[in-house]
Write a protein that binds this DNA or RNA. Structure first.
Length: 486
DNA sequence: ATGCCCAGCT
């Protein structure tokens, strides 16, 4: 700001300074510069406009960004890209895609940065068909060998469930950055392909062109965790601790190890590990351990951890539910009732579950007990029909997945309304026999829906690819790639 | 002036 006192800034000065507002100077400074720009009539200059837009987008002020966007006298690639990437970076993937398509119709030119931004949004949506379309645009644009774009494509294909295609792109690259390796490793990790993770990591070190970074290690450790190779994961982690790899583990890597041990049923070891680690454990780390206590029915540690979590994040309803179930399984009914009362008092409702299916470039979204989809009645009828059919074949609804204090019959009704069952049923109705059904869910899938999906795959001979918040479930003939371990 | 990868909990 001092610079402005004695020099006459031009629009380049504004643009340059605005760029550092997100990083070091902060949003308030950015807003002040905006008002100075208005006074000097620089606001409508393309460079200043795009920088302002980006500053607002990166500060999470998407409305302000929109305001600037609409005041621009013309919309060039940079301004369009800045606002699309603003949406994508805030996780507003649907909005980013919508805007991209609209601007395309209006004749926007796209460059490699635009494609990279929209591919990020498509990864989030798991919108494979849109992704393929952008891929073909990229091929026609003449930028198909640009490493940043190829990295985005690897990420998009693997997060859209097509990890083989991601690998094909990876293999075809003339040169790779650390991000290329990381994107591929994360892809394998999310698909539970631990062996491939380790093989690729080995290749990376043998090739020795690119040094692994801290994210590489996160990907490898989480890959071991998802793929049940906990001893390999531990070995890699202790090599980091001993300084063999030149990357010092941060709290994230410690969190991965807690998860690794906990999932493998080594709950007590995980508990000790937390107590000894050189970081103050976060709620997320305790939450991960609590999840393991639930899966492996470790009531004793679970109750200790659950109590800690209630202090750390009293607003999180999930913790109350797990803790009350743990008390119930220990026969401590009064404690259980106390927890339920406390939950009524303090917890806020959790993010609503949502699942979607992409069909002919249209994203069909379902909410729990959906009342909005045009074919909701047909879909609800199908779910009911499926549950009857599956029960004859051994499906037993897992009522412990229901959080409310209601009777059993109602619990089952709630279960059948879960968004992923609706999406699965819709997939069955709306796609030809034998085709793969791809469902994406915004939260983690529950045990009951997981089992339901396995029945769909077996009794209807469908491959079901289900992506939840954390990973992929590739279900063929009633068997899931996660090994029922997630 | 705009861009790629990020564990676990929610």
């Amino acid at each position: 700001m001092v610079i402005f006192a004695d020099t006459e800034p031009n629009h380049f000065t504004f643009a340059t300074i605005l760029t550092s507002c997100y990083g070091s100077l902060g949003f308030e400074t950015g807003r002040q510069i905006h008002s100075i720009a208005i006074k000097r009539n620089y606001e409508s200059h393309m460079f200043v406009g795009s920088s302002l837009l980006d500053m607002y987008a990166k500060s999470g002020r998407i409305c302000d960004a929109h305001g600037v966007f609409h005041c621009l006298p013309e919309r060039d690639v940079v301004a369009c890209t800045a606002i699309i990437s603003g949406y994508a970076q805030m996780g507003l993937d649907e909005e980013a895609l919508k805007l991209f398509r609209q601007l395309q119709i209006e004749g926007m030119n796209s460059n490699s940065v635009t494609y990279a931004s929209v591919l990020t949004a498509l990864s989030g949506l798991a919108a494979l068909n849109h992704g393929k379309q952008v891929h073909s645009h990229v091929l026609r644009s003449g930028q198909y060998s640009y490493v940043v774009l190829l990295n985005s494509l690897i990420d998009m294909y693997s997060k859209c469930g097509n990890v083989c295609y991601a690998r094909r792109i990876f293999d075809s690259m003339p040169e790779r950055t650390c991000i290329s390796w990381n994107a591929m490793l994360v892809g394998y990790s999310k698909h539970g392909m631990a062996r491939e993770v380790l093989e690729l990591f080995k290749l990376m070190r043998e090739e020795n062109k690119v040094k692994p970074d801290s994210i590489t290690y996160l990907a490898v450790l989480s890959g071991c965790s998802h793929g049940q190779l906990e001893d390999m994961g531990l070995e890699i982690f202790y090599n980091m601790v001993n300084g063999k790899d030149g990357i010092e583990p941060d709290i994230g890597h410690y969190g991965c190890v807690v998860d690794l041990l906990g999932r493998a049923g080594r709950v007590e070891e995980a508990f000790d590990f937390i107590k000894k680690m050189p970081f103050v454990p976060t709620a997320a780390i305790w939450g991960s351990l609590l999840g393991s206590c639930r899966v492996h029915s470790d009531v004793e540690i679970g109750i200790i951890v659950g109590q800690k979590l209630l202090e750390l994040e009293p607003e999180n309803a999930g913790n109350y539910v797990i803790l009350s179930n743990l008390y119930a399984s220990a026969g401590k009914w009064e404690d259980m009732r106390n927890i339920r009362d406390l939950m009524q008092e303090k917890a806020v409702t959790k993010e609503p579950g949502r699942s979607w299916v992409e069909l002919d470039q249209i994203v069909h979204t379902f909410h729990a007990s959906d009342h909005t989809h045009p074919r909701r009645e047909e879909v609800a009828k199908k779910v009911k029909e499926l549950s009857i059919k599956f029960k004859e074949d051994g499906y037993v609804p897992d009522l412990s997945c229901v959080l409310y204090d209601v009777d059993e019959e109602q619990k089952e009704k709630v279960l059948l309304g879960h968004s992923e069952k609706l999406a699965l049923a819709f997939g069955l109705i709306a796609t030809p026999e034998g085709t793969t059904i791809r469902v994406i869910k915004n939260l983690r899938i529950c045990v009951d829906c997981h089992s339901f999906a396995k029945f769909v795959s077996r009794l209807y001979a469908r491959t079901v690819i289900l992506r939840d918040k954390n990973r992929f479930h590739n279900i063929v003939g009633g068997v899931c790639s996660c090994g029922d371990y997630w």
